[in-house]
Design a protein around this nucleic acid. Structure first.
Lengths: 231, 231
DNA sequence: CAAAGTTAGTGTCAAAACTACACCTTTGCA
DNA sequence: TGCAAAGGTGTAGTTTTGACACTAACTTTG
């Protein structure tokens, strides 16, 4: 890091103008057997009426992760979910108002945990299937594309997908999540063999009866780590 | 993104103080059969005399990637190498002067391409083995740890390690790079089978004689993509 | 110029991982 | 009670991985 500034009586912002820094969150969930993400409708210019990722300016004494969690809570009422930093988007001109550098986060939560309501700054908050997104503000289409690729590729070497399930789940539900994510059918026996070989889940001993068919064994994650890396 | 500011005649920096944004680069190379990285000795406070990652403040109209490349060139004379964004570090208090958010980059280059000289802001620039780092300024030890983990884990699913070799190389040299990175010996026959199965390298037809032994075939990367993802 | 030293270069076999594939079980409901 | 619907299980063929040892070609030295 360079040291290209000395103390003078001029405030920084005139001698070395600072960019604004925001966080934006790509929150995925699975609803109606589709991968969906949360967008808010912008209530103000620029891009008024367009849809955008939830997010906002970083407070001057606030950590980045905290900012992402706070903005998500404020704008959507969603709390306590899996959040990981995705990348930082800072192309000059991406915000027409001023230079804005955005630290993007990838978030996952099970549908059950979410009760979205529009917050102060948002005209509305709504879920959209990843395959049918509306026109987006700023460079948020690009941010979402990166998030989606990251999620899909992380399936191969981590247990990140478990973050899309509630605390307890059946193997059928788990398989549905994976099938939705990879957008393909998976062989049931091979999938179950694989899932049990992970050593990341254990049966609770309970059965869950849903629908007119044989009840399913209920599982939970072992360990309290949010995600495990495979091999 | 929220819209929590209106236009008034007050400058931004008083109503909504902006953090400073920097880029820092973790540049790895292999020297003397060891993974080494480039540090600069700080010429000014804070942390004067400590070693730190090369980097500096983002210009107000400058893209982040450009900033990382520019600062690296200015401080060390190193140009035209592999650069990828690593992550953003913004814990309040990580810089004692003011709030500084740092976008970190991972960079790789072959030793042959590097002729490091200390630039304006740095008292000195030097290579250190990853296994024997000096005390570091700011949170740069943490940044380096993340970069190192990223590099090692990317070995498994990409051809990122080829960025540590010059344009042409022998399979022996390639194997040495991998052995240095994973810090273990690799079976020669299995390695060569693997490397050729990648379909990412081709023989140039030349032979390279170095030392008192049989000359080795020379290879180059096929395709001009910097890194390929495997499987 | 022969011998010694050094890295280049090659194939096989066993174990492990992966893939394809079909039937019975248990429940709810008509 | 029988039908619809998801739950639950094993095996065999194929592919991938990992262990392992010798000959080839060059340089240097005696």
């Amino acid at each position: 890091m360079t040291d290209s500034r000395e103390d003078t009586d001029q405030p920084y912002c005139y001698r070395y103008p600072h960019p604004a820094v925001t966080t934006d969150v790509v929150l995925f969930t699975i609803r109606d057997d589709a991968l969906q993400l949360l967008l808010i409708e912008r209530g103000n210019e620029p891009f008024k009426g367009s849809w955008a990722l939830p997010g906002g300016f970083v407070d001057i004494d606030e950590d980045l992760d905290d900012c992402a969690a706070r903005e998500l809570a404020e704008e959507t009422g969603v709390e306590n979910l899996y959040l990981e930093q995705l990348g930082t988007f800072g192309r000059p001109g991406r915000d027409p108002r001023e230079r804005v550098i955005s630290v993007a986060y990838l978030a996952l939560a099970p549908e059950e945990q979410l009760s979205v309501r529009a917050g102060d700054d948002a005209a509305a908050a709504a879920w959209f299937p990843v395959k049918a997104l509306p026109p987006l503000a700023f460079d948020h289409d690009e941010v979402i594309a990166v998030a989606h690729r990251r999620l899909i590729s992380k399936l191969d070497y981590s247990t990140i997908a478990f973050q899309l399930l509630p605390e307890t789940f059946t193997l059928g539900e788990l398989q549905q999540v994976y099938e939705t994510l990879v957008d393909a059918e998976i062989d049931k026996r091979n999938f179950r063999k694989w899932a049990q070989a992970l050593e990341q889940i254990e049966a609770t001993g309970e059965l869950r009866r849903r629908g007119k068919h044989r009840p399913a064994r209920v599982y939970r994650l072992t360990g309290r780590d949010r995600i495990a890396y495979l091999k």
